[in-house]
Design a protein around this nucleic acid. Sequence first.
DNA 1: CGTTTTCTTGACAGGGATCAACACTAGTGG
DNA 2: CCACTAGTGTTGATCCCTGTCAAGAAAACG
Lengths: 227, 227
Amino acid sequence: MLPEDEAILADLTSSRRSVERGDILREGAQQQSVVLVVEGWVYRYKQLENGKRQIVSIFIPGDLCQPFGATPRALDHSLAALNQAVLSFVPPQVLLGAARSNPRIEEALWCDLLKTDALVREHMVSLGRRSATERLRHFFCEIHERLAVVGLVEGDTFDLPLTQVDMADLFGLSAVHVNRALQNLRSSDLLSMRSRKVTLPEVAALRELSMFSSADPQRDGVVYSRA
Amino acid sequence: MLPEDEAILADLTSSRRSVERGDILREGAQQQSVVLVVEGWVYRYKQLENGKRQIVSIFIPGDLCQPFGATPRALDHSLAALNQAVLSFVPPQVLLGAARSNPRIEEALWCDLLKTDALVREHMVSLGRRSATERLRHFFCEIHERLAVVGLVEGDTFDLPLTQVDMADLFGLSAVHVNRALQNLRSSDLLSMRSRKVTLPEVAALRELSMFSSADPQRDGVVYSRA
DNA sequence: CGTTTTCTTGACAGGGATCAACACTAGTGG
DNA sequence: CCACTAGTGTTGATCCCTGTCAAGAAAACG
């Protein structure tokens, strides 16, 4: 990314806001701006009348939580933070303007949008066609790769601010079963977890097992990378 | 939609192509154009190494099968037709150009994109948190509403070119279980099916039961409507 | 430190998968 | 026009993955 592009994108994060764990925008809220994650983890979810919840996307630093051209409208889902997070609320006009003024930025924004969609699709495959253990394996590969891109993996270890209840709602499982599937992974020595820190000693083997294919061969589409 | 807009959009369907049931684009293919469905049903799916398949989206006439700014890239999924379909392959530059030249078109394209995403999210909720019967009920409500918008519902009846195997791959179930869930619906007199024709005698009751909430209160975002 | 959240474990139940026939439909070619 | 075939729909029997309930252990937190 060229310096001039970076300058423009740095502007996007000039008006930051810090939020605590919990809802940021509720389903039905009139959404004015696009949320850019600067720090922390954010997720989208939908809640059913019977109390069941499904997490549909997870966002990490550098991710845009909505399509960059999302015009003001009522949200069909809720947006929440998993831990304390720093967000930037960017009016879509700003993003659209940046895209118009600079083809490279336009390209980067579209690239980001397409990758976000691709992740959602992969998640759907997990929900529909993978067993509990397979879902976990695949997810850990995916999140490891995404975090590595933005420099949030140290060695083979990273923070994972998800409780087992969160994971249950993410994977479409019960919390009890997530617990048991995690024990599976731990006993196979492909994963260790303690106090929200995950270590994947053999990522390559894990990828092999979970038939994980990188969604991001080029790794050039991150809209905003941490300094 | 104003006449001048319609003229521009009509242009988009000038170069049509007819396809038979089966794959249109395979995963990994280099995608050059955005596919617009003029007639017939199209779907996106992903296939796993073990042969399992997950359908991630269904498209009906008037739908754009990719984000309108999708730049040429390798597809992460496959695109296929459920029945004989007429498609228009539109270069993204054409759509982006139309968007730049006319704010109403830009708005319509973004609106379409956001709605497609919203449908995907609702589908994820089904996969993760709804029982087999609930998934079917919800799907029939959704598809009924979408078909009605483009004038493909007569009375309370419409064509459904999905086999039970297709539905299984759409809902993340086995074909046998789809069959049994369908019998549930039929025995409750909320649905009748014969030779690919579906009738929903009491859509209102079905919506109530499936807690279906319209994703499209305004119904103004269809990019291309059949004449 | 108590309190609350989160994690773990066991027993049990159930939704849905799998396997294997068989019926039905539609398309094929003789 | 009718058998032949392949795909689709239907049914029954059985298994197992995952959910639910409940209770205790461990960790996080002020």
